[in-house]
């Protein structure tokens, strides 16, 4: 039995009167890539954010390596081995690529000098562009930077929010290949949120389907891909 890295137990949260998550339970084992697919507004990003403590859980628990982190301040969660590449990338546009990466290591107390080579090995493009301003990078490079910045904190668990958003298919395949390489070489645990269900389910060991704040299906990536209702709802039938 694999060791559980992240356990989300009946998590409910929302914004004001809007209930975004209505009791979500899932788990991610150590060394696993788990993907969460769902339509716009299903609560995918909210779930990732809520794992990090923003918005706070109204009910339920989040456990990291068996430790309850539900009530912990966000910055402590992020320093304690969780890293997120947020939706829309959110790199620092006026700071250089190198500064962006250093910011990733800084708060988590990692030495940038030891983490940089790892990230540059994974994304050699970032090394070429390290003196360039973040905002001048292409969309794909910005996504590499966002993931690289998250990796600089040497996380146990990497949360990725729509890494393929707005990218050309070729570029998003490169990004997915990098995620797979990370998982295989370092055994990094990844929880991935995607709209691009086809690619995400091919990459992931397991997947969950989130519909309006509830998990409706789960299974291995291949299993979910084979399900007719998934094909109809998320793969547009044509893939």
């Amino acid at each position: 039995m694999a060791q559980t890295m992240l356990e989300v137990d009946n998590l409910a949260t929302g914004y004001g009167a809007v209930q975004a998550l209505k009791g979500v339970s899932l788990h991610v084992d150590k060394g696993e890539i788990v993907t969460l697919i769902g339509a716009n507004g299903a609560g995918k990003s909210t779930l990732l954010m809520s794992i990090c403590g923003e918005p706070r859980a109204r009910a339920g628990r989040v456990l990291l390596d068996g430790e309850d982190i539900t009530a912990r301040p966000t910055h402590e969660i992020m320093r304690g081995g969780v890293a997120q590449s947020p939706e829309g990338r959110r790199i620092f546009p006026r700071m250089s690529v190198l500064e962006n990466l250093v910011m990733g290591a800084q708060a988590a107390g990692q030495d940038p000098a030891t983490q940089l080579p790892r990230v540059y090995d994974l994304f050699p493009r970032l090394k070429e562009r390290q003196a360039q301003r973040g905002g001048t990078l292409s969309g794909g490079e910005q996504q590499m930077l966002a993931i690289g910045r998250a990796l600089m904190s040497r996380p146990r668990l990497l949360l990725l929010d729509e890494p393929s958003l707005g990218l050309a298919p070729l570029i998003s395949r490169q990004i997915f290949a990098a995620i797979r390489a990370l998982n295989e070489s370092e055994g990094l645990t990844v929880l991935l949120v995607e709209q691009n269900a086809n690619q995400a389910l091919r990459l992931a060991h397991r997947g969950y389907v989130l519909v309006t704040g509830r998990i409706t299906m789960s299974g291995s990536g291949a299993e979910l891909l084979a399900r007719p209702e998934i094909r109809d709802a998320y793969l547009g039938g044509s893939h």
């Binding site: 910055h75 620092f92 546009p93």
Partner: peptide, 24 residues
């Protein structure tokens, strides 16, 4: 210093700062 870089990062994007574990 780290705090100065954190200020500049805060100016750029507050949400990203939170995601990186910076105490806002």
């Amino acid at each position: 210093q780290p705090i100065g870089r954190a200020w500049e990062a805060l100016r750029e994007d507050e949400v990203a700062c939170r995601a990186l574990g910076i105490d806002i």
